[in-house]
Design a protein around this nucleic acid. Sequence first.
DNA 1: GCAAAATTGAAAATCGTTTTCAGCGGGGGA
DNA 2: TCCCCCGCTGAAAACGATTTTCAATTTTGC
Lengths: 144, 144
Amino acid sequence: MVEESKQIFRAYLLQQGLKSTRQREIILDAFLKAPAHSSTEDLYLKIRRKHKNIGYATVHRSLKLFAECGIAAERNFGDGTTRYEATHASEHHDHLICTGCGAIMEFEDPKIEQLQQQIAEKHGFAISSHRLELYGSCATCLAN
Amino acid sequence: MVEESKQIFRAYLLQQGLKSTRQREIILDAFLKAPAHSSTEDLYLKIRRKHKNIGYATVHRSLKLFAECGIAAERNFGDGTTRYEATHASEHHDHLICTGCGAIMEFEDPKIEQLQQQIAEKHGFAISSHRLELYGSCATCLAN
DNA sequence: GCAAAATTGAAAATCGTTTTCAGCGGGGGA
DNA sequence: TCCCCCGCTGAAAACGATTTTCAATTTTGC
């Protein structure tokens, strides 16, 4: 899956007349290894540890590129920072977010997707994407 | 419904030891009359037309208060600005957002809510709120 | 009315994000 | 291979929305 993402990204660069650079490879590697839902800052700090000369702006620009070519998805859970998630061709999924400890869990439900489709049709609407987030307390936080 | 919201707000102020002021009443009035999904800026400019001496910060602070006491809900549709929506004890609803013209439509679907509940239970999770947004093209934009 | 405490408005600070710009570097063509 | 064009980079500055600061003002309980 990681290799596939890399190939998609490289193909995208080629197709768009963009260049393959050392930095982009480093950032791509770091991104694909990082935990899902990392922020630009998270990733920047992580990369910074090994590569002192890579700038925040470059990390930011690379993440935008990843999102453009489809190997990453931007997420926004309302805490003011944008997070990125590798999509590596996986099924779409939604999120459960614990407002107590900040834990983020993923789930998918075809039935909900299907109902969304029906609602859109009823409004003459063509869905291109959606977001569904459930906020509350996770099992661990409930136990305390 | 408007009256009910006003009473909830006033009760909240009292309960929290906060003060009822001319500005808060003006902003509350304007908020309850404004279109759903107005931004702080929208509301500020609207109020500014009649009350030249009410500051942006006060509008902002009041909206936060409205959200705190439950008569308003913060929304964030990914365009970088926070929008507020009067809840006046209405049923919960979700949003269809047209990425072409920016139109925002509302819908509700008890079946989806129910499925969400089931998913949460499966993960030992207690939902306190959720958001569901469908992005795409509205009927009008599709016709063009 | 008085005093204590909260509120206000303007301005400044802050936060994450995005752009600028001068120098660097990739890679196609000679 | 060597150029050269043009995209890329990093640091810093710009940006836009949000939040805080602070001195003056207003509200509220007594």
